[in-house]
Design a protein around this nucleic acid. Structure first.
Lengths: 229, 229
DNA sequence: CCCACTTTGTGCGTGCTTTCACAAGCACGT
DNA sequence: ACGTGCTTGTGAAAGCACGCACAAAGTGGG
C-alpha cells in the first residue's frame, strides 16, 4: 500500500479544469526531453499566472523541490493519476453525423486513457457502416452495448431534438458521465455529470466582446421589423 | 433615437456566458407560441437558479413585469442585441479536416448572426474542393480573404502544430476574435479574444469526477513502469 | 560549514459569483 | 377604488477564485 498523498479530498473545480492543460504542457516538455521545470516556465507555457499554477499543484500535494522546480515525469504521473487517466475509460458516441465522425476519427484523445468503444446512430443507412475501424451500431442496442463494453462515458452528437432521449437512456443504462454537443440543456438526475460543448455559445460570447470592442458603433438605429406591442 | 436602456457598461463575464443559453431557451418557447414566461419557468428550462436568472437579466435593464413575468419576444430581441447578433459576423474556418467540415456543414448556427464566409486549408489536395457550398481556399490567401470578405471571427480547426501560426496570421490580418479547437495554448497580443473548445479536456474533467464518484477504488496499486528516480 | 541564490508553498486582501430573502410593483377581481 | 396574490429587482451575506508578496526550504559555491 502506497502512502496516501497529503492532499485533502476536494480539489477546487477551477483547478480541475486547468489540470488537463498543465498535463498537456508537461507532456510536450517531456517529449522535448526536459527533466525539470519551474512554476514560472510551466505557467507561461500553459498561459496562466505562476502563483495560480503553484496553488493548483499544491492541491495535489507537494511535488516540487524548492530552488529547483518540478520533475516533469513525476508531475505528469501525479496529474494523470488525479484525473483518473491511469485507468481506461470506454466511450460511446451516439449520433454519427459530421461531428460524430470527426470525433471518432480524432485519434489523439489528448492523452491515452480514453478508448472509443462504440458508435451508435438512429439512421438505418448509417448503421453497419465502418467508421474509424468500428461498425456503427443501432441506437436500440445502446443498453446492451453499454453493459457489454463497460461504457462509462457517453458522448452525444445527435441533433438537438434527439439529445434528451439519448441522455435519459444513457443514464438508465448506468452511464453517469455525459459529454453533450447538442445545443440543448439536458435534464438528468443528481449524481450524473453533464458537460456541454457548444459552438454557437462560444461564437456568441466572442461576438459580445467584439461588439464591445468596436464601441457599439451601430446602436443608434433600431432595426426595422420589431414593432413593440 | 431610442432611449438608451439604463444598463451600465460592464456585464459580468459569468452572465455573458449564460445569455446564449437563455436566448436559445427563449427561442424554443417562442417557437412553441409562448408569449410570456416567469423567471422560475425560464430558469428551470435553462437549467439555472431563478434568482441568478433575474440578476443576469437585470444587468440588461428591467425588461420584466412584476406579477407577470417577461415577454418572450421582447427578451429575445434584447438579448440578441446585447450579444451583438443583430449584426452579421463573417466567420472564416481554417483547417478543413473532419472537424472543419463538420462545422462548415453545421447549418444552424444556433441563431442567425453568423455567416461562414471562407474555408481555408494548407493541403493542396483539399484546396478547390467544394464544402458546404463554398470553395476551399489556400491558407496563403488568408490575409486577402479576411480583408475582402470582412472576416471578424476566425475559427481554427487545424492540427495542433499549425494552430499558433494561423492564429498569428489572423491577428496580423486584423481578426481579434478567435475560436480555437486545436489542443494548444495560443499566444496572442492583448486585445485579442481567444476562446478554446477542447474535447479531451472535457473528457478528462468527466473522468476526474467519475473516478471520484467511484471512490477511487483502484488507488491501492501503483502501476508498474514508473520507477521513481 | 556557511552564505548567497533560487524557487516552492501559502497567508491574506480583493473582487467576483452565487444565493437568500424581501420590499416594491403590477394585474386583476370585486 | 382598493385589497389580494403573484413575480420582479436587488440589498446583503456567504463562498470562491485570483494574485501578491514573503517565509520556508532546498541547491551550490567557496
Amino acid at each position: 500500500m502506497t502512502s496516501r498523498p497529503p492532499r485533502e479530498r476536494g480539489i477546487p473545480e477551477a483547478t480541475v479544469a486547468r489540470l488537463p492543460v498543465y498535463l498537456r504542457t508537461l507532456q510536450a516538455l517531456q517529449d522535448r526531453g526536459t527533466l525539470t521545470v519551474s512554476s514560472e516556465d510551466l505557467a507561461s507555457a500553459a498561459g496562466v499566472n505562476s502563483a495560480k499554477l503553484r496553488k493548483d499543484l499544491s492541491h495535489l500535494g507537494s511535488y516540487g523541490t524548492r530552488g529547483v522546480g518540478y520533475e516533469v515525469r513525476y508531475l505528469v504521473y501525479q496529474i494523470s493519476r488525479e484525473l483518473g487517466l491511469t485507468q481506461d475509460w470506454a466511450v460511446a458516441i451516439v449520433g454519427i453525423g459530421n461531428l460524430g465522425r470527426a470525433l471518432a476519427n480524432y485519434g489523439g484523445f489528448g492523452t491515452r486513457g480514453f478508448r472509443i468503444a462504440a458508435l451508435l446512430d438512429a439512421d438505418p443507412t448509417m448503421v453497419g457502416r465502418r467508421v474509424a475501424s468500428l461498425d456503427v451500431g443501432h441506437i436500440d442496442t445502446l443498453e446492451s452495448v453499454v453493459r457489454d463494453k463497460g461504457v462509462s462515458i457517453g458522448v452525444i452528437t445527435t441533433p438537438a431534438v434527439a439529445a434528451q432521449a439519448v441522455a435519459t437512456r444513457f443514464v438508465e443504462a448506468g452511464v453517469s458521465s455525459i459529454l453533450n454537443f447538442a445545443p440543448v440543456v439536458l435534464n438528468v438526475p443528481d449524481g450524473v455529470d453533464v458537460r456541454k460543448v457548444d459552438l454557437s455559445i462560444e461564437l456568441q460570447i466572442l461576438a459580445f466582446h467584439a461588439q464591445r470592442r468596436n464601441g457599439d458603433e451601430d446602436h443608434g438605429a433600431e432595426p426595422a421589423g420589431l414593432e413593440l406591442t
